[in-house]
Amino acid sequence: MRNFGYFRAASAAEAVQAGATPQVHYLAGGTNLVDLLKYRVEQPEALVDINRLPYGHIEELPDGGLRLGALVTNAATAYDARVQARYPLLSSAILAGASAQLRNAATNGGNLNQRTRCPYFYDVAAACNKREPGSGCAALGGHNRDLAILGTSESCIATFPSDMCVALRVLDAQVRLLGPAGERVVPIAEYHRLPGAEPWRDNNLLPGELVTAIDLPPTDFGQHYTYLKIRDRLSYAFALVSVAVALRLDEAGHVLDAHLALGGVAHKPWRVSEAEDLLTGQLPSAEVFGAAADALLAGAKGQGENDFKLVLARRAIVRACWQAAAGTPQSQSDKHIR
């Protein structure tokens, strides 16, 4: 680990001012950043410790939504009674991720900004356009079993590893930012980026911008939801494919509203409105769910070792839709797939 400066910000203004300097990173839970420092993937001049900033609370919003402070830990968010009652999908997705110890330290803001787990990103001897722009992509033609099948580019096939953000995408969360130019709000859909020609840009944060909160709009997905995460190892492993589904059904069982997103398959949580439109007004059936899965996976392309993800994702989507429609969400404590 290269030596770096350390500055503990006493106020948001102080943090943003310090954070606007190039080669300065914000430090919250540090569960990903500290690893990256050790691996020398990140070699910042300085860290600005934001843990004392006033973003450690979950608050009610006037419209009936919730505001999740950026510094609330993933564990505190998942176990918050309001989150569990009104956004069980989010709670479930968080608990599907990492380990209890990591969730106790990791923050909501940090979860949004975690880096890919592509092995070549962590290997400073390997070519990686995300780590070192212009160096190439060792994952192309390399070991890519865990990597992306959707939204890839010629310069990067990395995935975004978050579970939490897949649920946030389904819940249409809004990300609140504070930067040198003041506050702004970015819909979660526009927060993360596809790799394109600039894979080093994971998201659309501007220099110095700091996540202060995640706003959840009021929803009615408390009954019909699931977060289904498929992985080789049942705990403490990243998703091969994960599916977040939230449905509203009428009394006859027709789908009034459907939100679906995938994790583990792209550089951002993957959501396609055409897939959801195919569900609206329909009764649950294998055909309907299969058609939605096909729409969600339109354009998917394997890289060789990860070709199986096309089949796996389609089956996982259909399965997750059934779980949501039946009101039997995947348990995250008994991790066996239901």
């Binding site: 390997a126 190892r233 049942l234 403490y236 492993a237 991790k335």
Partner: peptide, 22 residues
Amino acid sequence: DERTGHWLNDSLGEALVPTNAD
């Protein structure tokens, strides 16, 4: 990585051994 001979999953996070759940 079969091109370089580098063991890639050389950490306890990426080298999967059974957890209690498994």
